[in-house]
Design a protein around this nucleic acid. Structure first.
Lengths: 235, 235
DNA sequence: GAGTGGTCTAGACCACGCA
DNA sequence: GCGTGGTCTAGACCACTCT
């Protein structure tokens, strides 16, 4: 934990400052040169940190002007959602574990291509239902390769997020990923879980998250009720 | 056109080579040091080019191994779509201009926030319907600020894409953007355009693309038939 | 051990915005 | 004209993969 990369440290710091209001929405961040001087880094390092913030939609850069702080989108894990209510905070987010982590074989017709090593070792499987302001918003099904993560099936996930546990206990960091999105009709199972009528449209997402451990990716299938919230992305 | 940035030149070159099969799927790109030597660049420049390819999902990098060429996703403009058929090429893509570019006022309740300068100048408006293999796949409504682009309303858009014209004629480059996605039911207008039944789910996307010209962003609303294709994204 | 990508330093020049 | 971010050079060391 202590030897995080420099750009990462600056990123985390600026991120916290933005979220906690040290830098107000619409105001300018210190210039790149100032940040270099303040934190004893060179510009490429500072720029790497700022690039990450841009990618997440936290700031907006303008040549000749500066880095503008934006209204922070609310994140749920890696997902960004945007609500109709003005201030949906992560504090209003609740998670139900529908299926605690169990070791299984990979499904027969898995949506993603797997390496031989991944397939041979089987997977860890878990299901979650996540709420914003006590309303179910999305349901996700997750598969992780059964490697690098001893005793994970014994963990409760009650208070910490999956990603936090992976980072803190196993030094696994999410580096990036890819996803496919579709609009589909909710079947009886999904409509029941998300408390919507059958046949209502829901966002269907297949996602692969890559990590700093080679051959360790997290595969998720997500059903998202987009009636009151949206998936939000920057690129 | 001639004074494109170095990293951009390398990016375009590698991208073409991947798409044309010079580097086969699954094979390794030349190493970063080789690319430096071959094209007379330094590593940060080469890495910037490779980072762009990673972001677009064209390659996958692995420390200690190399840059792995991936099956290229098929792009439509900035959108990436992935088809059920194995090889949907851009060559099968057709575009109908439903509404040629016209100067208008901005809509009353526009989905995005506008600067005063943008609002005062009004906008250019156009609508397109786009086909893959002669099947309508998405319908988009576009608003651009009415600035920097003299005589654009006189252009036909028959053969060139909107982005190509902006780049070649006006030196406007897309740098990035952000988008909100929802799943909604097709109303009668959308179902008619996309040739699907009413009430079928479609992807609804609101998107803002930022460019290298300050204050010049492209705003699009997109209705996407995700029955046979998906929106694809890397991050 | 050799080669790869990941991070980082310490400079330089340019294009753009703003006053 | 000044300060900003955008690009680029020319090195360095480290962590990782493969043999």
């Amino acid at each position: 934990m202590e030897q995080m990369h420099q750009y990462r440290k600056l990123y985390e710091l600026l991120r916290e400052h933005i979220l906690s209001g040290v830098y107000a929405e619409g105001s300018l961040l210190p210039s790149e040169n100032e940040l270099c001087a303040t934190y004893g880094m060179t510009r490429p390092t500072v720029r790497h940190a700022l690039d990450t913030l841009v990618k997440e939609g936290m700031i907006l850069k303008q040549q000749g002007k500066g880095s503008i702080v934006r209204k922070p989108p609310q994140n749920i894990g890696i997902l960004s959602i945007e609500g109709t209510a003005s201030a949906i905070g992560v504090r209003y987010l609740k998670t139900d574990i529908l299926q605690k982590p169990v070791a299984k074989m990979w499904p027969e017709n898995f949506a993603f291509e797997l390496s031989e090593a991944e397939r041979d070792l089987g997977c860890i499987y878990l299901e979650r239902l996540r709420f914003v302001e006590d309303v179910p918003v999305f349901y996700d099904i997750n598969h992780l390769p059964n490697i690098y993560i001893p005793r994970i099936t014994a963990r409760s996930f009650e208070n910490k997020s999956l990603f936090e546990i992976l980072r803190q206990e196993y030094q696994i960091e999410i580096l990036g990923g890819e996803q496919k999105l579709k609009a589909i009709k909710a079947d009886s199972k999904i409509s029941g879980l998300l408390k919507i009528q059958e046949e209502q449209p829901v966002l269907y997402i297949e996602r692969k998250l890559t990590t700093n451990k080679a051959g360790f990716s997290i595969y998720s299938t997500i059903y998202f009720n987009s009636e009151k919230h949206s998936i939000f992305g920057s690129f």
